[in-house]
């Protein structure tokens, strides 16, 4: 059981850290959102792996509830970020068009 816990938790930690760094470094909005989501899943994997108690025993339910909360928060935040990005594109395009008209 400990072996599985460690293996999944380590995988989670790896994905968490790399996602986080990519989220800071990425230069496209969509790329950033993907990276932050990936990083979040890595963290959730860490939590759930540490809640695992072997095949014959039920896992600790509290981290599961926490992760469920986290999944919903992540989709909400991604949706808001995409909406802001869309509005931003709209504004930029309209200002480009205005510049194009005046020149």
């Amino acid at each position: 059981m400990e072996q599985a816990q460690l293996m999944f938790a380590a995988t989670g930690a790896l994905i968490f850290v790399f996602g986080l760094v990519a989220g800071l470094r990425d230069d496209s909005l969509l790329g950033r959102i993907i990276a932050i989501n990936i990083s979040g899943v890595g963290l959730f994997l860490l939590l759930v792996a540490l809640a695992y108690r072997g095949l014959c025993q039920a896992a600790d339910p509290i981290p599961h509830a926490l992760v469920l909360t986290g999944i919903v928060v992540a989709v909400a935040a991604s949706g808001l970020a995409i909406a802001i990005g869309r509005k931003l594109d709209e504004l930029r395009n309209s200002s480009h068009r205005r510049e194009g008209d005046s020149s």
Binding site: V48, A51, Y52, R53, L55, A59, H64, V67, I71, V75
Partner: peptide
Amino acid sequence: WARLQAPDLALAEAAIG
């Protein structure tokens, strides 16, 4: 998630994540 005995999360991840 299903492997780690977290079926609630498996459902939520498939639908939401």
